[in-house]
Design a protein around this nucleic acid. Structure first.
Lengths: 220, 220
DNA sequence: CCTCTTGACGCACAAGTGTTTTGTTTGCTA
DNA sequence: TAGCAAACAAAACACTTGTGCGTCAAGAGG
């Protein structure tokens, strides 16, 4: 008997079948799915071989759970959307100078449209709390952000000096993208263009809504 | 009357729960999983809301099948490894002011690194002959393109007036990104910033290498 | 020949799970 | 206020599915 790494023909069949099934259906097969499609005479035969595969670490099983078969390692990760390169973030809406951002906490990030984010822009492991907004108007053109661009923002309420943030200026009820500087007891919001004047205000009057981590632009 | 985007709070919860559950476990939740974890009093309530989500096309259900709930659209595609709506283009190299572009025809596009391109930047059906270059230096900052940006170019040798193109100026042996204008018997290459002077030259002295169709920028 | 092991089998049971039925609550409005 | 539809609730029902247990055939070794 080859206890080592050798799989019986039937075990290989089953493993391949599970992979294909998940790919096709989006959920794992039941023992009887395997039995029927692979023309195995009994469910216990399937169960026996699944246990072998489990012992060898090729699959994981949640006992007592229907369709509780999951693939191990690479296959698993790939199916989980860690698909190597890019990830996805919700496109929550439009940012226009003068209008407040929707509160990401209150927006349905689940049902929102999602857009791809290349790993070259934001690595997948840093994609937490990142959302996207489409820019309307050219109010942020000094920050190299044009009308129609999609900006990627990581939701955070604090900022380091020099970071580009989406700041809500409370007494004006307006949101703009500016570089953030904390200078003594006041805040300086600096446009990227020296032709425009910076905004000086108190910390209480500024609510950071997120930091700009990326820009996507289509010129078609 | 639209609350949110037409989903009740509970439906949003359920949708989010399904997403998280699949991510955590690798297989979809049962109705009773949802019921218990979301503290819903009855399975029929879950079934009712799942049907609503199904009607709205946000999930897909395989009837009579345990855990036969699958997420629709993006999530689904993501799980299938189709990486969503975007496509991939080769990242051929670096564009620096003063150096000619590598000829895309002569580069091994098959072996080159590939980067994701969101459908929102370039729709997949328009991805033919598109390649990417990383920008080095700030020579194109007037075109809202900064150092480190990735520009997406469609390989073409002609351009319409006003299009942003990568133009090789032969007698200077330099490549820059400019807006292209054909005026009579000469070519005007117009920087995006009026503070810079346009370049006037003859058509023979200009070789269009590609048209800019998108920009990707990371600010991490 | 006998026994033990391995792989495979069949069956039945219990738990897991989706569906249906009937009725109730809630919020809105004509 | 009555009417109405969405949402919820409780229970019963029937099918699905994982598991346990007894059995069988073919080798291996004594």
């Amino acid at each position: 008997m080859r206890r080592g790494n050798g799989l019986s023909l039937r075990q290989k069949e089953i493993l391949r079948y599970i992979q294909e099934f998940v790919r096709e259906n989006g959920y794992p097969p039941s023992i009887r799915d395997i039995q029927h499609d692979l023309k195995i005479s009994s469910t216990s035969v399937v169960a026996y071989n699944l246990n072998v595969l489990k012992e060898k670490g090729l699959i994981h099983r949640d006992e007592k759970v229907s369709r509780g078969i999951t693939l191990a390692s690479d296959e698993q990760a790939m199916l989980f959307g860690l698909t190597g390169k890019g990830g996805k973030v919700p496109l929550l809406g439009v940012i226009t100078a003068g209008s407040p951002l929707p509160d990401p906490e209150e927006v349905d990030t689940a049902a929102a449209e999602k857009i791809d984010v290349p790993a070259e822009v934001v690595p997948p492991e840093k994609l937490n709390d990142v959302f996207a907004l489409r820019v309307r108007g050219q109010s942020m053109i000094d920050a190299l952000i044009d009308d129609g661009d999609i900006v990627l923002l990581r939701h955070q309420e604090n900022a380091q000096n020099g970071e580009m943030v989406a700041a809500w200026i409370v007494d004006q009820n307006a949101v703009t993208l500016k570089k953030f500087y904390h200078e003594g007891d006041r805040i300086r919001l600096q446009p990227a263009n020296s032709a425009m004047q910076p905004i000086y205000t108190s910390p209480e009057n500024v609510r950071i809504q997120g930091r700009v981590v990326g820009v996507l632009r289509s010129l078609l």
